[in-house]
Write a protein that binds this DNA or RNA. Structure first.
Lengths: 233, 233
DNA sequence: GTTCATAAGTCGTCTATACAACTTCGCCGA
DNA sequence: TCGGCGAAGTTGTATAGACGACTTATGAAC
């Protein structure tokens, strides 16, 4: 294995293990030169590529630091819905329908790819934008990765915000489809008859495991999902 | 400007101008050393970063070449719907409803951010998966970028396929929402009453211009949009 | 105490060189 | 004609050294 890759992996491993957290200082190029007995150019390449990957941020004269939770993926923004709403200048409010610990059954176990009986949390939250329900979030979380998930107050911090804080995001998968809501959904979202919903299934991986499965349901007429991608020089 | 950036830009410019096309050979590191009077490490960095950006592919022993149209964006796959259907093992068929040249009017001009009167093509195509309509594609294309768009046979090559061939994709923007179809849509997609659709608005840029605006409408129950993103070491 | 100059630490870039691995192609011999 | 060998070209990686720009802390001068 190339030596610059070994350096990158050692730092990525430290992030995955929690030995390095967002904001923490990463060894400087000079220190890596000593630790790994490489030339400075090799240490430089390792850190430079980690910066390109968004793992660290570097400031000339200051040092290299683990990047904040996630500048987000490249496209579909994994942003905090609370922030998003506040940026639009509206009040944000959350109503927690439920948040309890469960054992995975034959229906829920496949969602997180675990065996039946595994402990997990099951939360349902309705997010409001200025009194109007804008998203229903039904989420399953691996209990082992977030043991105190059941005690959190999601009116103060969204599950997304909490999870990106305690578990470094490694991979995200989205599926989007358009359906008609069932009666319960319709009630929670305050929809009139015949209004469709946009349903997004979001799965997130951390520390090499699938840790969360969420259904995010929006009123089709009150929500747009936006994504952009561009190449640069 | 750093010298490796100057090299990258010169190559990116050549791609944008059409002087370099997919598959074309890019000057080797040794040639760049002579052309730009830099050290090989500097030329190497320029080409290496272009490879990371997906602009070129490099093969040890062989050379560096402009990458194929697009390995796709990073997430939402800009894939050929025909390929996608065939990969699922079904027959693909397209029905061209219209394909004509128009002048931009007050409604269509803003879509491509051009002034009223600009020549553009307006095509409507229904894509079928094994007899079932799976997508309606209504698209506006800047005529100046694709002068022969009006003469193409879209039952043999999709607009997407054609456009990515003649114009290097620089930026893509997606917006997704869920709505109820109007009567005409419902007919074309063969939907029963009360079935919602997933409507995606896709805008693509090439050579620094917005060149295409497309509405892609899918039956909500017969389509899923999928996207994934992951960081690697 | 405040302000300013200086020094140390750090990253950003660039050079010159070296060796290894791989690809391609031509040449030579069987 | 076919096969194999080797040379030339190309990329991948690594080293040692250099200079510049920026940040931070230290300490001196006011």
């Amino acid at each position: 294995m190339p030596r610059y890759v070994a350096i990158k992996q050692s730092i990525c491993d430290a992030v995955r293990d929690g030995r390095l957290n967002p904001g923490d200082r990463v060894p400087s190029e000079a220190e890596l030169v000593q630790q790994f007995d490489v030339s400075r150019m090799t240490a430089n390449r390792a850190l430079r590529e980690l910066q390109a990957a968004g793992v660290v941020v570097r400031r000339a004269g200051s040092g290299s630091f683990i990047a904040e939770p996630k500048p987000i993926g490249q496209m579909i923004e994994i942003r905090n819905i609370a922030e998003e709403i506040r940026e639009r200048g509206h009040a944000y409010r959350a109503r927690v329908i439920q948040n309890r610990e469960e054992r995975a059954n034959v229906e829920t176990a496949p969602l997180l790819e675990v065996s039946v009986g595994t402990k997990l949390f099951h939360s349902i939250i309705v997010h409001h934008e200025a009194e109007f329900p804008i998203q229903i979030e039904e989420r399953f979380v691996l209990a082992s990765i977030a043991p105190d998930y059941g005690t959190l107050d999601f009116t103060r911090m969204t599950p997304n915000e909490y999870l990106t804080r305690i578990a470094p995001l490694e991979r995200v998968e989205h599926r989007v489809c358009s359906t008609m809501p069932d009666e319960r959904m319709r009630g929670m979202l305050g929809l009139s008859d015949g209004e469709p919903v946009l349903q997004m299934t979001r799965r997130t991986w951390s520390r090499s495991r699938l840790v969360s499965h969420a259904w995010l349901t929006h009123p089709g007429t009150r929500f747009e999902l936006s994504a952009a991608f561009s190449i640069d020089d």
